[in-house]
């Protein structure tokens, strides 16, 4: 069977078209064109940072994107996110949505789901998005540093202005130092430099001369005191001095104390005997009490037998 040229061309074109259609179909299927999509609504007080097509990320993987941004009647921004059916399992009722704006890189919505077993998020429920803004945080941290740097710069400027000013503190201090050194250079002695008065220096010299006389007198006195100390030594430590006599007295006292020791021992013995005897006193006392009570009982019994006992009458004397 022979095919006509037209038929062959027709078949070629047809096959090519089918192949192209199939390829497109597979491409669309691979891109999720035929997949069922879920749309959730998020809310935020400000739309700043949100853009259409912004990725929705779960654990670092893109699971969807922002489909549309709308403004409701109360001025709240509504963010519609589109999640494919295969990723909708990550969106749960307790999921938290965070707009994360890193310092470097594109902004995204992070989904944090703590419990994957919780119920799926209702598509009618509107969840609020919290904002984490690295750029603002960084600016907030840098701001005080910048203020300090500005202040330092102002201080440096003030200092340099002061230094450059001929009537400034530093220049005045330098001129004073120059005056002092020139004044000191013209004085005769260190003392004159210190007191800057010649008469005072003379008075000081006179005082020093007198001090020499005083030290001579003190030397003389000390020699006399030495002689007196020698005499006192003799009187205290000499053969007939006070100390040997005190020694004799002390020996006598020690001898007498030794004799007294025996007396103290005897007193101790006596007190021990007495304390032992005192123990018997309690027994003796109880014996006396018993005897008195017994006598009282006898008297009472006699009274009862005789029956002459009258009730005592109390009256003032």
């Amino acid at each position: 069977m022979t095919l006509s040229r037209e038929l062959k061309v027709g078949l070629f074109i047809g096959c090519t078209a089918v192949t192209i259609i199939l390829a497109l179909f597979f491409l669309a299927a691979g891109k999720g064109f035929f997949e069922k999509m879920h749309v959730f609504t998020l809310s935020s007080k400000s739309g700043d940072g949100f853009t259409e097509g912004m990725p929705v990320v779960f654990s670092g993987f893109n699971i969807g994107k922002v489909q549309a941004l709308e403004l409701d009647d109360k001025g709240i921004v509504l963010i519609k996110i589109k999640i494919p059916d295969r990723h909708v399992k990550w969106i749960r009722s307790d999921s938290k949505f965070v707009l994360y704006r890193p310092l470097i890189g594109a902004a995204r919505i992070d989904v944090n789901t703590s419990n994957l077993n919780s119920s799926p998020l209702d598509t009618n429920q509107i969840t609020e998005v919290t904002v984490v803004n690295d750029i603002n945080d960084a600016i907030a941290k840098v701001e005080p540093v910048l203020e300090q740097v500005t202040q330092i710069a102002e201080n440096i400027e003030h200092l340099t202005r002061n230094l450059s000013d001929p009537k400034g503190d530093l220049n005045r201090a330098l001129s004073n130092a120059e005056k002092i050194t020139s004044n000191l250079a013209s004085k005769k002695s260190l003392v004159e430099m210190a007191v800057s008065d010649e008469e005072s220096v003379k008075a000081l010299n006179d005082s020093l001369k007198k001090l020499k006389d005083i030290t001579t007198s003190v030397d003389r006195i000390l020699k006399k005191v030495d002689k007196m100390a020698d005499k006192t030594d003799h009187e205290i430590y000499g053969k007939n001095g006070a100390l040997p006599q005190i020694n004799v007295i002390l020996r006598d006292i020690v001898g007498k104390l030794q004799k007294l020791d025996k007396t103290v021992d005897n007193i101790n013995k006596i007190s021990t005997d007495t304390s032992e005897g005192m123990k018997d006193f309690h027994i003796l006392r109880s014996d006396i009490d018993d005897a008195v009570n017994a006598l009282g009982d006898v008297v009472k019994k006699l009274d009862a037998i005789i029956g002459s006992k009258k009730s005592p009458e109390f009256k003032v004397p």
Binding site: I306, G307, K309, S311, P312, F314
Partner: peptide, 22 residues
């Protein structure tokens, strides 16, 4: 007879002792 004539009412001990101590 003398014993029988005597009072039989006993005097309280505290009263007797108080009187004696006073």
């Amino acid at each position: 007879l003398i014993c029988a004539c005597g009072t039989v009412t006993p005097v309280p001990a505290w009263k007797e002792n108080a009187y004696r101590h006073l």
